[in-house]
């Protein structure tokens, strides 16, 4: 049984730096697109079915043994925004640092050496899942869950949203998170070109704007 390892990996307290990021929620709150738990749920549903699906596919493919450098290139092609590419690589670097201490492996060492500036986060996540003895589906679950847990946690801080309501948003998304993880895993079996490439135009546009703010609560 590897369930406990998955809980460790997907725990928001895993020291990989995601607490400093809002997944686009800070910009969406400023623009008035997230104002309450209902609009947070809409935001999360969109993020889950776009960048969450893409991350699930990449993570599952990395955990399934696809070449991480090819996956890193596939992640670049699916991320037109330079700000989002920088964020993903930064989070990948931080996750790599924590991961090599927690579940060391030669595969992680190799990728760290090949991408000193950081590989894309979902690729590192998938490889880390593999090191932890987890399956591609587990890796996809962790990626899909993170795509909604990050903005939800941030929205609580940004809006003073009731944490009970915020957790209820995540709980209601649980069936969709499972579906996204399964979809990402299935696509990963068909090869890198078949990986999902679902785009979220507003996340791309607002990420570039957010990166220029002189004062902000979250790094992204």
């Amino acid at each position: 049984m590897t369930t406990a390892a998955l809980l460790v990996l997907a725990d928001g307290r895993f020291p990989a730096g995601t607490h400093a990021h809002s997944g686009g929620a800070e910009a969406a709150v400023r623009a008035g697109r997230i104002v309450d738990s209902a609009t947070l749920a809409d935001f999360c549903r969109g993020r889950l079915h776009t960048s969450g699906l893409v991350a699930s596919g990449l993570a599952a493919a990395a955990a399934g043994g696809h070449n991480p450098r090819d996956l890193d290139e596939a992640a670049d092609a699916r991320t037109p925004s330079p700000a989002l590419r920088r964020t993903s690589r930064k989070l990948g670097r931080q996750l790599m640092r924590a991961g090599r201490a927690v579940w060391p492996s030669a595969a992680l060492d190799d990728l760290a050496q090949a991408c000193p500036g950081g590989a894309h986060e979902p690729v590192v996540l998938g490889l880390l899942a593999l090191s932890a003895g987890l399956s591609p589906l587990d890796a996809a679950h962790a990626a899909a869950y993170e795509s909604v847990s990050v903005p939800t946690t941030a929205a609580v801080r940004l809006l003073g949203l009731d944490p009970f309501e915020a957790s209820a948003v995540l709980a209601r998304l649980a069936p969709s998170i499972n579906k996204i993880a399964e979809g990402g895993t299935q696509a990963a079996r068909s090869g890198i070109d078949a990986l999902p490439a679902a785009a979220a135009p507003l996340l791309e546009i607002t990420a570039e704007d957010h990166a220029t703010w002189p004062v902000r609560l979250f790094a992204s």
Binding site: A31, T39, D42, C44, G46, P196, P201, L203
Partner: peptide, 17 residues
């Protein structure tokens, strides 16, 4: 890039997409 919009596409009209 893929974009899925309109009735039946989850989350397409929310603040992320």
């Amino acid at each position: 890039q893929q974009l899925d919009t309109g009735p039946g596409a989850p989350g397409w009209d929310g603040g992320a997409v």
